[in-house]
Design a binder for these strands. Sequence first.
DNA 1: CCCGGAACCTGAAGGC
DNA 2: TGCCTTCAGGTTCCGG
Length: 272
Amino acid sequence: MPELPEVETIKNDLLPLLVGHHFTGVTLHWPRAVLTPSPEEFRQQLKGQGIAGLGRRGKYLIFHLSSGKSLILHLRMSGSLILKPTSTEPVRYSRSIFTLDNGNELHFVNPRKLGVMWLVADEQEVVRKLGPEPLDPSFTPELLGELLHRRKAPIKALLCDQKFIAGIGNMYADEALFASQIHPLERGGDLSKEEITRLHCSIGDVLRSAITSAGASTSNYRRPDGTPGEAQLSFKVAHHGGKPCPACGTPIQRIPIRNRGSYFCPNCQRKK
DNA sequence: CCCGGAACCTGAAGGC
DNA sequence: TGCCTTCAGGTTCCGG
């Protein structure tokens, strides 16, 4: 599932290949993925647009266009972006194709049709509601403590809430909680100062390490050249149900939290 | 404001 | 072999 490290990897991979080029056309095989404006306006406004830069906010990938507008993509659960030379060979589950001036085409591969796109004058229209960027220097342990104050939801649910903090999803929430030895059902507001400090540190470590490994390919995620990332090889609990905990050997447990599978070590991560 | 659950989607995996 | 059910989990919406 594309979370912050996966979107960051896609941005880094595409940056040198796209910036300075322009879109020559757009084909929409699943127009409902365009949330704004209308699919037809989307196509017309993108045609001929130069790509001035690429950015990321949380799990959102942002194309800065020469018109000053922003093309924003969210891959949701199963989406990926593939960049390849134009050919007649079909790309499986390609739902949108952006053709470029250099003979390449960018495919929005979107098997479950959950991924979405926007074309807006101000990117804040889309990303305004997001919480802080966990890798930004302004995200301090003190800020995390303030955000957690009096929150009653399970810490796992808060970490996955994009309004609470941007970019973290199921996998990296589980990994960060294991690294900081906190039970996923612990109420956010019940974390001690020491636990908050550990959690803040673990969030940064887990995300930075995953970016270095080019993201985690647990299912559909691929880099734009089609190769998988390797962050999943370092996972200690995520998707490891029943396997021994790498720290103590206790079988990793899986419980549902907010309808999501949560993996943790019942010995290393005790609830108070 | 805060929390939990359903809905959107469809391929993959498992049971019988 | 094939049908059926369940699972996957990011986001938004809705109800309490």
